[in-house]
Structure formats: structure tokens, C-alpha cells
Design a protein around this nucleic acid. Structure first.
Lengths: 226, 226
DNA sequence: ATTACTAAGCACCGAGTAA
DNA sequence: TTTACTCGGTGCTTAGTAA
């Protein structure tokens, strides 16, 4: 995949093709690329062939949208810029969301030896068995993306004879709640490919639901250090 | 300037050629570019010709460093990524520095009609005549760069028969100081090409030095919303 | 108006060579 | 070793054409 392809892909993203399909013609795209119509058309074919975009051709143009893979390619390049300009910068993101009940996976995973030892070594505590799940509001979903680009504490995946367990990324956070003072907590985001981006989980040495007296639907705000 | 050139430029920046000259040979650079030695050499020539890098050729390699223009080109591309991924995200940067006495320029500029009216309209107040100058610590200089990529309140430049006055960018900020509660304040960064990056100025409707009882050398922390 | 193909031209890549 | 040429071949761009 060459630089020109990524250039084209970025321009598509700037046109809004990351969230939803956009309608465009090779002629109009050639203007943003500053190339001939033929080249613009070829680029669109290439990107489709490489699995970077979905495409639907109509008689009067085409509908185009980035694929997951296309977004990942752009993320990788964005990551390079983060390294160039913000390597040593640490900033804070405020996330707000509603407490929800997860599928109990957090409870299962936090008790596995393969993870538990890493939490102790890397975060400094054995986690309470279970995670506090937060469904982010619309604004926070955007802000959450910041975490994808930040340095994280990596939890490695591992294998057992039966199955493999994926890795995850942890970010120290401060829960903005009067009872949370002094309680260590981390946002943890599993590295599964299809993990939803509007939910985050918090691990902590204590049972947060009880300590903070939280119920489903309660709003909670966090300040995540990235 | 084509996408391949910017690609090469970015790789140089990743090698650290933004802060200081680095030593490299076309052969070693060809590995990071994944191209032939000749192409790597040609790319370096091109970038020099386009004013993106400084270059000094020795018998055993060359010293290379990005020019101001080279950095600006990368910034522009980084800016596109910010727009793609973080357009709606607002986050906070914490800056820390020492109070210093400026050259009195702030006092002059804040009284000019061309600026004053804009401040009133865009920030909501007529500024106290004078700015509070802060010399940032090393860590904050890095964090400050974030502001270059954020949406700002733009103050437009203007012309008089005698001379032209440049524009600037304002960011709402919260001064972390017990006496600063309720005082509106903005970081303002002039858009001059050679403005130092380790100094920021704060404008406010009040005389901050007096209100906060500050003297030169006092440390001050701000939280800037970007 | 579209998209997609073909074909001609040219620009770029990289091997080879010189300093 | 280097950098900086030259030169041949390849592959990309774009004009033209078809559907």
C-alpha cells in the first residue's frame, strides 16, 4: 500500500466517509486529489481492491465508506504523528457515562491467573473480581478515541490448551465521585477486534458498585490520564 | 510536493530530525523507506531542494534536520488527522510555568482598537491592558503543542496605513490558583512566524498580577480547554 | 452525466558507474 | 564506504473510447 493510496484514503475520511457512506463521483474526487478523473477512479478501484473501502456504484456516481481496515490504516499513520508531536505530552480526557451491567465477562477474566498476576505487577493490586461497565455518552465516545492513540499499560494475552485469551490496555483514571477519593482505578479496554467503542470497563481493588453506592443508570464521570 | 515526499519527511521526523540534526546515510534511510539506496538519496535531495530539510554532506554520510517549513508541512498533515479523529473531542491540557515580565508588547496590543473590539465580541470582555507572561517548563512546552492543533478562537489581524498587525489564537483557560476563581481568562498565542514556543500570554478583564498577587518567578498552573 | 478500459507517453525506480 | 550522476526498463498517469 503506497503513500498515494493512504493520501486518497485520508481525503475520503475528511469528506466524512468514516462514519457513513458518502456519495461522490470520480470527477469530484479528482478535484480533492488534484489529479485527473481517471486517476481518481483508479484510486477508488484500488482502495476497494485492497479492502480499505466499501463501494457501491450507481449510474450517477458511487457511494463510498471506509472499512474497518481502512480506518485502522489511518489510525496507524495518525499514531506516527502522535509520536512525532506528542510523545512526551500527557493529557487528560474526561469521560462521562451511565453505569450498566455487563455480561459478567469482567468477573470471569479478572479471576484468571494469567491476568491476575499481570494486574498485580503492572497496576499494583489484585483486582476485585468484576469490572464496572460504563456506557459512554455521545460526546465521550469521541473523546474515548484518544485512548487508542495514547501509551497504555499493556496486559498481555495468553494461551491455555483449551483457548487463547486476548490482551488489553489499561489507563489510570480518577473517578469523579465523592466516595472515590483514594481508590485506585484503571480503565481497561480489551484488544478484541470487535469490542464496542461506547463501553468502557473499570477495574479496581475494591467493589466499586458497593463503595460508590452505584446502581444501573447512575451517571459517572472519570478523568483518564493518557 | 507529493505524498512520497511527505512520507519520507515523516520518517525523518520519527528518527528525531525535528529537534536536532541526525546523522544518516542514504543506505540506512533506504531501509526505513523500504526502497533502493538511490531512491533514498534522491528523496533527500528533493526534500532539500524543496526547503523541507537542512542537509550537510560528509564523506561518511550526512547530517539532516527538518526546517521550519518541513515541520509546518507535517503539522498540516497531522492537523488533518486531528480533524478526522478528534474533531468533536475537547480535552484539557495542563500547563505549568513561571511568571515573567514581557517586553510590554501585550500592554500595547491589548489597547489597540482593532483588537479590543474583537476581544469584546469573541471573548466577551474588554481586556485589561497588558498580558500575563508565563515561561513554560520543559514538560509544558511539549503539551503546549497541542494548542497548535486545536480549534481556537481566532483574532484577526488588520492593517493601518502605517503597518500591519498579525492575528492570534485564543483558548479559554482556568487558572489553578485560589484567588482566580471566577476570573475569566484566555491564553493568547500570536500568529507570528517566529514567536517563541516556551512562552504563553494570558489575557483577562482584570489585572491578574494584582488580583492573584503574583511576582516574577512565581509558578502558575493553568488548565487550557482545547 | 457516470464508470471502466486501452494505449501512448512520460516520470520515476533502481542498477551501474564515477568521484 | 559514501553521494551523485546516467540510463534503461517499468509502471503510473492521462487522453481517448466504450458502455
Amino acid at each position: 500500500m503506497d503513500a498515494e493510496t493512504i493520501f486518497s484514503l485520508r481525503k475520503l475520511a475528511l469528506l466524512g466517509a468514516m462514519e457513513q457512506p458518502i456519495k461522490l463521483s470520480a470527477a469530484s474526487f479528482s478535484e480533492t486529489l488534484k489529479s485527473s478523473v481517471q486517476t481518481a477512479a483508479r484510486r477508488l478501484q484500488e482502495m476497494e481492491r485492497e479492502g480499505l473501502i466499501y463501494r457501491r456504484i450507481m449510474v450517477d456516481g458511487q457511494w463510498v465508506m471506509l472499512t474497518r481496515r481502512g480506518i485502522d490504516v489511518l489510525k496507524a499513520e495518525c499514531q506516527e504523528y502522535r509520536q512525532i508531536f506528542f510523545a512526551k505530552t500527557n493529557l487528560e480526557v474526561e469521560l462521562v457515562g451511565k453505569v450498566i451491567t455487563g455480561l459478567g465477562e469482567g468477573k470471569y477474566y479478572t479471576t484468571l491467573e494469567g491476568y491476575k498476576r499481570q494486574f498485580k505487577r503492572k497496576l499494583g493490586f489484585f483486582p476485585f473480581p468484576g469490572t464496572l461497565n460504563i456506557k459512554l455518552d455521545a460526546r465521550s465516545i469521541e473523546a474515548r478515541r484518544m485512548l487508542d492513540f495514547a501509551n497504555a499499560i499493556r496486559i498481555e494475552g495468553f494461551k491455555t490448551p483449551k483457548r487463547t485469551f486476548g490482551g488489553g490496555r489499561c489507563y489510570p483514571c480518577e473517578i469523579l465521585h465523592e466516595r472515590a477519593k483514594g481508590i485506585r482505578s484503571f480503565v481497561i479496554i480489551p484488544e478484541r477486534t470487535h469490542y464496542p467503542d461506547d463501553i468502557i470497563e473499570i477495574i479496581s481493588p475494591v467493589f466499586l458498585r458497593k463503595e460508590l453506592q452505584l446502581n444501573d443508570g447512575d451517571y459517572l464521570a472519570l478523568r483518564v490520564k493518557v
